[in-house]
Design a protein around this nucleic acid. Sequence first.
DNA 1: AAGTTCGACAACCGCAGTCCA
DNA 2: GTGGACTGCGGTTGTCGAACT
Length: 321
Amino acid sequence: MGRSPCCDETSLKKGPWTPEEDQKLVKYIQKHGHGSWRALPKLAGLNRCGKSCRLRWTNYLRPDIKRGKFSQEEEQTILNLHSILGNKWSAIASHLPGRTDNEIKNFWNTHLKKKLIQMGFDPMTHRPRTDIFSSFSHLLALANLKDIIETHSWDEQAVKLQAEMAKLQYLQYLLQPNSNINNTTTSLLTDIDTINLLNSLSSSSPDNIAGGGSMDSLIHLNNSSIPFSHMPDLQASYQTTPTNNKDSTPAAQEFPVFSQLTPAAASSATPSPPSMVGPVPETSSINNLGDVCSTSSCYGGAPPSIWPELLLEDPLFHEIA
DNA sequence: AAGTTCGACAACCGCAGTCCA
DNA sequence: GTGGACTGCGGTTGTCGAACT
């Protein structure tokens, strides 16, 4: 298949379009239609390649383009569709009238992706990240650095650190959704193993790596439920722990679905549906979710909404099904 | 006030698919 | 069937203004 040279002519202008160029392009297309994009620049009196003209028209000058910030509904639609379609920006754009694939792609990369990451979700899978312990260990270390320095020798702590990290790494392995655990029995054993391991961590001596607070931290993290979303026992604490007023967190306000999860849904051992359903990390434990709301796409006081519903209503969902 | 960093978004690049002579 | 022309698409880069030091 031959490849057409397009913009390799060095004499052709690149870079930002001027208002004059825009005007020429719009006038020409309004009068003649775009026809052949390759021929268009000459006919329109533009020193651009056809490809550049096409992009400028489709991404910016087209009259039916909706500009401005994305609405909350649009944001949810993007999240839903992305969870099914992945980076199929044009497919996503086709469900958002007036929005271009480029605009959606940019919005995803600059806002939504960061938001998911900050909330502890993998932006590609829309599931809780399973590598949370890598950062968790850092958090533990930071949180207890003072205690370590003040009360214990470095050697002593180093040994304990290694032991705890080994446990955590094994725990992480057990929690891997793609681990080679296929049959029910093994899966059950795994959960038991996992819980036992957690218990062992929680029952460690008070001067363990977390300075007596590692399991507390875990439980609080479990309120955020990133690593344990498929662990029923721990989910119980998720729903009953009163000390964490999730509804007051920015994330809970912004994504009310997280605070509305039923125990059954929260304790489901089944991997979450493509849409992002799952508890939200506790603001103060994981990261500053206030930052999440600091973006231009945050809509304080907006009515609650639930992505999966939107997803199921979308005709695309039926197409795919 | 000047320089630097960062975020948002427009634009470019190159591959892949489709159409058609 | 073949190959050139063209379009669509997704990843990446460049630019510019705002925020920060």
